[in-house]
C-alpha cells in the first residue's frame, strides 16, 4: 500500500518534471539522445532515493548536472565529434533565427559543463544566484564568477552573440 503510494507520487513527479528536465539536460549536453539517457539515469536515481528526498526536483537537476559532467569527462577522452547543427522539430516562428541558434549551440558546446549549467539555470530557468548555487552545490561567488566567465567566453567565441550576452560583464548582472 505504501509502495503504491510512493510509486504514484513518483509517477506524478515524472509527469510534472519530465519535459523541463529533458530540456535542461539537452542544454547541458547539446545532444537529444544523450539528454534522454541522462534524464532516465537521473530519474532512476531519484526513484531509488524517493522516500529520502526533501526536494526531488532539486536533486534531479543536481544529478543531471553531475552526470552531464561525468559524461563530459568521458566524451573529452574520445575523438571530438562534429556538431550536427540540430534544428528543432518545429516550424520556425517569425522571431526565430536558425543561424543564430546554431551559432549559440556551437558556442555553448565549447563551454564547460558547469558554465553551461550556470547559464541554463540562470537564464533558461530564471533562477536566482542563490538557487543556482544551491542546486549545483557551490557558493554564490562561484556562480557569479562562472556566469561572468561563461558570458565572456560566449562573447569571445561568437562575437555575433554580443547583443544576447551583453558587451561588458556589468551588463549581465541581474
Amino acid at each position: 500500500m505504501n509502495e503504491d503510494r510512493t510509486r504514484a507520487g513518483f509517477a506524478e513527479f515524472v509527469r510534472a518534471e519530465n519535459a523541463a528536465s529533458t530540456r535542461f539536460a539537452y542544454l547541458l549536453t547539446g545532444d537529444r539522445q544523450h539528454a534522454e539517457d541522462l534524464v532516465q539515469v537521473a530519474l532512476a536515481r531519484v526513484a531509488v532515493r524517493w522516500e529520502r528526498l526533501d526536494d526531488p526536483g532539486a536533486y534531479l537537476r543536481r544529478v543531471l548536472y553531475t552526470q552531464a559532467a561525468s559524461w563530459w569527462r568521458w566524451r573529452r577522452a574520445r575523438p571530438p565529434e562534429q556538431l550536427d547543427g540540430f534544428v528543432p522539430d518545429r516550424p520556425a516562428g517569425p522571431g526565430d533565427d536558425v543561424d543564430l541558434r546554431m551559432v549559440l549551440q556551437a558556442a555553448l558546446a565549447r563551454l564547460t559543463v558547469r558554465q553551461r549549467a550556470v547559464l541554463v539555470l540562470r537564464y533558461y530557468e530564471d533562477r536566482t544566484e542563490a538557487e543556482t548555487a544551491k542546486l549545483l552545490g557551490s557558493r554564490i561567488g562561484t556562480v557569479k564568477s562562472q556566469t561572468r566567465h561563461a558570458l565572456g567566453r560566449l562573447r569571445s567565441l561568437a562575437p555575433e552573440l554580443a547583443e544576447f550576452v551583453g558587451r561588458t560583464p556589468q551588463e549581465v548582472t541581474r
Partner: peptide
C-alpha cells in the same frame, strides 16, 4: 540583453520532446 539570451536558450530547447 540577458532576456535575449533567455529567449535564445528557450528557442534552442523548447522544441526538444520530453
Amino acid at each position: 540583453m540577458t532576456s535575449r539570451l533567455s529567449e535564445a536558450l528557450r528557442g534552442l530547447a523548447d522544441g526538444v520532446p520530453a
